[in-house]
Design a protein around this nucleic acid. Structure first.
Lengths: 116, 116
DNA sequence: CCCCCATATGTTGCCATGCGATATATCGGA
DNA sequence: TCCGATATATCGCATGGCAACATATGGGGG
């Protein structure tokens, strides 16, 4: 099994990943944790101590809205994207793409020197 | 002019970028700052308060070696990659590629839903 | 029936690091 | 002479991922 990615890498896109998961369908913390783990091929395992504060921040920023679900067995806090959250997802995705392209532009000359 | 990238994004690849620049040719702090600015199309402007500690860290880790150059006018501290630094560059590049591919894998389903 | 594990959410303190501000010094040109 | 670019360095702040810990409950096996 390949190693997990370090905090410094994750820092750049954890918000975006969660936004993206919520865009597929609403979810609660523990659920998002599993979905991310699965979707990333076990490579991104967001910790509880990271995820819950992150969700709280997003709620404070108005990107998600949440509601408690008590009826069906377990007590769960369901999150869904707001309109602002959807806009955020789009802009964050663009930003990420721009960033990746930019890094590639810096690395590529060296890369060809190394491999070519 | 497009906006600069935030600290959280930079965190994932600043080391790699500097390693990459030094792999092309040795350089001193201020020089690397300019080279990175240029190579990134003005998008990555590493601050002095970021760059110098970063270089010191890399030296402590044995990835670069440095020597003062006083003779030609200005006092400059030239850095070059060590063998460990070159190995580091290769492994960090691979790690970055793996990461980008992983994020893409998570984002792509949503992306097609948004745009397609 | 009880115990343990998975589920579920939360907080606390630690640590790494990018950044703005500040300090210091020198060179060259207006 | 003075100012801006060059050049290196450090300090304190804010951010956020993480391990550890706290708490609670549901369900299955012994």
């Amino acid at each position: 099994m390949t190693e997990r990615f370090g905090p410094d890498l994750l820092r750049g896109s954890l918000d975006l990943l969660v936004l993206s998961l919520l865009s597929s369908s609403p979810g609660y913390g523990y659920d998002l944790q599993q979905r991310l783990r699965e979707a990333s091929g076990e490579l991104v395992q967001i910790q509880a101590g990271t995820l819950y504060p992150l969700l709280h921040r997003m709620e404070a920023d108005g990107f998600v809205r949440c509601r408690w679900e008590q009826s069906t067995g377990r007590r769960r806090k369901w999150y869904e994207l707001t309109a602002a959250g959807k806009r955020r997802l789009v802009s964050q995705t663009r930003e990420w793409d721009r960033y990746v392209a930019c890094i590639r532009a810096v690395l590529d000359p060296v890369r060809t020197a190394l491999e070519g």
